[in-house]
Design a protein around this nucleic acid. Structure first.
Lengths: 268, 268
DNA sequence: CTTACATTTCAACAGATGTTGAAACAGGAG
DNA sequence: CTCCTGTTTCAACATCTGTTGAAATGTAAG
């Protein structure tokens, strides 16, 4: 039976860097095989990360089900059996790809947030400073020279828009950081309704996700005036837009506070 | 060879309602088979729309490659060969599903826009009125009683976030309407930089897309305070947020006008 | 009835898919 | 050298995939 990505769950696959899965021992405890770490550069390129790189490109372009292990293996110039040797299954490979860069991203953004808060002391940071700390590391970080990041961003967008297991993956990897940003926003937006805050984040997250996806839609729409893959430009425009959104949402808050969902009657 | 959704293109599949593809004549020129239209209700449920409904649910939940024609056929309680009889191929079926509700949506939103402009005459409509005309028909229209629409929205979100053929599908179906809204926004935001306008729309589109996807992410994040499938609530919060975003983007415009992408030097 | 055509079923095709076990290879240790 | 262990290759498996042709069924008209 062909298995589907239903409960991609987390059986050891989410714990950072499980080595070869089925076979004999556990050859490497970190990122690279033992043989590649004991004695300087091993000349032979590291197949494991080659597979991760290839899978990243393919998964981000075609989704989980749109990609064949044979396609990945071919791109990585590697035998079809190798992905299974290193990752055990297609699902585990996907999760490994998603894992790999998530921590880097979270660290970058957390320090940016801490810096923004420190810079504003003893005042609360501005909304703009918080939004910028959330967005700028993604769109302007020095890591972007490495080309794999563009694929990874598209992959995150894909996962974020995938109902079911996609949401679970996002929650596990990014919710802790998101909560810290929401805490900072509460400081910057005193008196803001909690529900308004979450809906505001929802809008923010959507804008960010589409920005990361770099689908080229806006290139067509604007007749080439703007380019969705110009991440620095996207960042510079997204920050004031989202900032204005949050501030407007707070202004509109008192009116929306009482009603649970929607009430439009004018009289009492 | 297993074909992928690469150039989903438009060979007759995009022209509204092509009938059975391979076989004999062309039995029905519109939405329902001839037999079902000539003599009142034909008792036997219409298999063609049953297939469309089933495909809508499956494609929106698992994407193009995550779905089997056999799964669709089973859900529609129909033989595997029937989808091919009516639509010719899996790709055509997907496009047919996407087509079906697009026109309804565009009509609803275009009239909402026209109404908003008419209501403001002779003044220009407010930004909020335009955003509301863009969003409200999607989130509060009376058509939402029919359950298929939720799947369709998720499908649109999926297509919008799919690089390549997804963008092409979106462009063909929705760009004409989008341009009309952009024209209205230009009236409501005089002096706004064109590039800022497009980037603003980009943020808007992202927020809207995630709202339509109803992934449930925000339910988890907010510990159940808000629900992503409460479309009316989403609408009421999205409108002020996006409105504020556009207005803030216009305020920030003069500073960003001169620089082509990013300039941060303080001295000349 | 017969005829004609639309719809539906059935069984099969050719190829692709994730996965696996066994064998081959590499390289350092004893 | 042999032995051990981690890595890589090879060939195959069972199943699933989109698609198709032919036969069966239904339906309305002549």
């Amino acid at each position: 039976m062909r298995k589907r990505l239903e409960r991609i769950a987390l059986p050891a696959a989410l714990t950072p860097e499980a080595g070869p899965v089925h076979n004999h021992g556990s050859p490497h405890a970190e990122d690279t095989p033992l043989s590649a770490r004991k004695k300087s550069p091993p000349l032979k390129t590291d197949r494991r990360t080659a597979i991760l790189d290839a899978a990243e490109v393919e998964f981000s372009a075609h989704g989980f089900d749109g990609v064949t292990l044979r396609t990945i293996a071919k791109r990585a110039e590697v035998d079809v059996a190798l992905p299974h040797y290193y990752f055990g299954s297609k699902e585990n490979l996907f999760v490994a790809v998603f894992d790999r860069r998530a921590k880097v991203l979270n660290d970058l953004r957390e320090t940016a947030l801490i810096d923004a808060i420190a810079a504003a002391r003893p005042e609360a940071p501005t909304v703009e400073a918080i939004i910028r700390a959330y967005v700028e590391p993604l769109f302007k970080g020095p890591h972007l020279k490495e080309p794999g990041w563009n694929s990874y961003y598209a992959l995150v967008a894909y996962v974020n828009n995938t109902p079911g297991w996609g949401g679970r993956l996002m929650t596990e990897h990014f919710d802790p950081l998101i909560r810290k940003f929401l805490d900072a926003l509460r400081l910057a937006l005193p008196g803001m309704n909690e529900r308004d805050l979450f809906w505001g984040y929802h809008c923010f997250s959507g804008a960010l996700t589409l920005g990361l996806a770099q689908t080229g839609r806006i290139d067509t729409l604007s007749n080439g005036l703007v380019h969705s893959n110009d991440l620095a430009d996207a960042c510079e425009h997204m920050v004031p837009f989202i900032t204005g959104g949050f501030e407007a949402a707070r202004r509109a808050a008192p009116a929306a506070k009482a009603r649970p969902t929607r009430v439009k009657s004018s009289a009492h």
